[in-house]
C-alpha cells in the first residue's frame, strides 16, 4: 500500500523503521545509528578475544577507535583507521548508503560508496566513551540469550512483518 502522507498519519499499522539488509557479521558484529553516532564493534584481525569499538559523531564527524579494554587503536592517525572504514562499509550494507549519509550529515555524492563517506568526514580523531558503546553491544548480544515466550503478546499486532520482496 502506498498511503498518501495524510493517510500515513491515519494508519495504526505502517512501516516506520526502514528495513535493514542482511550482511555477514564476522568482521563487524555490531553497528548502529544511535545516540547521534554511527557506532559499532569490529573484530580484531589477529586476536579472537579482542574487539575494537569505533564511532563517528554525526555532524562534527569526530571519530574514535579503541579496544574494548580502552587502549587506543594503533592504526588511528589523523584519518580513520581500517576498523572505522570497515564499520562504515558494513553500515552502508545494513542501512543503505543514503541513510548513513543522511544520518552523519556528510557531504558525499548522491550515488557514492562507503569510501566517499569516509572521504567526506570533516572531523578528526577524538577519544570517546568506549564503555557506553561496548555496553550497547553486550546488551545487543544479550537479546539472543533471552528465553522465548508463549504468551499471546497482543501488542505485537502493531508490528506485522512487512518484508516480502
Amino acid at each position: 500500500m502506498n498511503p498518501e502522507p495524510d493517510e500515513f498519519s491515519r494508519r495504526s499499522v505502517t512501516r516506520v523503521v526502514p528495513p535493514v539488509n542482511p550482511r555477514k557479521l564476522a568482521k563487524v558484529p555490531f553497528v548502529e545509528l544511535a545516540d547521534g553516532r554511527l557506532q559499532g564493534v569490529v573484530s580484531s584481525g589477529s586476536d579472537i578475544a579482542r574487539v575494537y569499538v569505533s564511532s563517528i559523531v554525526a555532524d562534527s564527524h569526530e571519530f574514535s577507535c579503541s579496544t574494548n579494554n580502552n587502549r587506543p587503536c594503533g592504526g588511528l592517525g589523523s584519518r580513520p583507521c581500517k576498523h572505522l572504514q570497515s564499520m562504515v562499509a558494513e553500515a552502508v550494507v545494513q542501512y543503505g548508503y543514503a541513510r548513513v549519509v543522511r544520518f552523519l550529515r556528510v557531504e558525499a555524492p548522491a550515488d557514492g560508496t562507503a569510501t566517499d563517506i569516509v572521504h567526506g568526514l570533516k572531523g578528526g580523531p577524538r577519544r570517546a566513551q568506549v564503555a557506553e558503546v561496548f555496553t550497547r553491544f553486550l546488551r545487543h548480544l544479550a537479546y539472543l540469550e533471552q528465553p522465548g515466550t508463549n504468551e499471546p503478546l497482543p501488542d505485537m499486532q502493531w508490528f506485522p512483518a512487512m518484508g516480502a520482496r
Binding site: 535493514v20 542482511p22 550482511r23 557479521l25 545494513q94 545487543h140 537479546y143 539472543l144 533471552q146 528465553p147 522465548g148 515466550t149 508463549n150 504468551e151 499471546p152 503478546l153 505485537m156 518484508g163
Partner: peptide, 12 residues
C-alpha cells in the same frame, strides 16, 4: 503464539 528474542541483523 510463540516468540523469540532476536536482533535486527537476524532476519528472513
Amino acid at each position: 503464539s510463540v516468540a523469540a528474542s532476536k536482533v535486527d541483523t537476524i532476519l528472513g
